[in-house]
Structures are given as structure tokens and as C-alpha cells.
Amino acid sequence: MNMKISWFNLFKREQKTTASLARERLQVIVAHQRAGRANGLDFLPRLQQELLGVIRKYVTVGDDAIRMNVERDGGLEVLELNITLPEAAGH
């Protein structure tokens, strides 16, 4: 009986269960949600959207033109903002 169950599980483990898929997807989603709201910075996605809007008044850029990164060093927080302009922009 026990043998039978363990063999059964052995074969089953080869393909991923939907529950483990659910777990993996949620781990990514929740990590993302939490990164956004860490230390009250849940406005970052909105800030990113608004900045994109402002930049697009002057140049045409894609959705990934802005990279934001928050770094913490002791009590200090640094918001790093990278805006990639298209090569022909300006001139």
C-alpha cells in the first residue's frame, strides 16, 4: 500500500501541478505589489505614467523609456530615474 502511494507520487511529480503554478505566479505578483508600496512609495507606478506623459509632449518614447529604481542606504532613500531618449531625438 505505502509502496504504491510513493510510486504514484514519484510519477506525479514529473509534471507540475496547477497548484504549484498558482504559487509561483502569486509569488511574482505579490513581490511586485509589495515592492511598489514599500515605505509608502505606492505612488511610483502613477509617477512613472505621469512622467511618461510629460516626456511624450516633446519626444516619442516607448512605455519602457523610464526606469525607476529606489535605493535605500541607512535612513536615506534615493529615487533613481533613467529616461532613455530615442537616438534621433532633438537633432
Binding site: K12, T17, T18, A19, S20, A22, R23, L26, Q27, V30
Partner: peptide, 17 residues
């Protein structure tokens, strides 16, 4: 359903939240 791998387990949900 948890045993069959069709449903998140208590531990899964606890780990995530």
C-alpha cells in the same frame, strides 16, 4: 484537492501573504 495538487495549500498561502 490540495492533495491532488489542484489547490494552494495552507502553507502556500501563508508563505505568500
Amino acid at each position: 484537492r490540495v492533495d491532488k495538487g489542484e489547490m494552494l495549500s495552507v502553507k502556500d498561502v501563508q508563505d505568500i501573504l
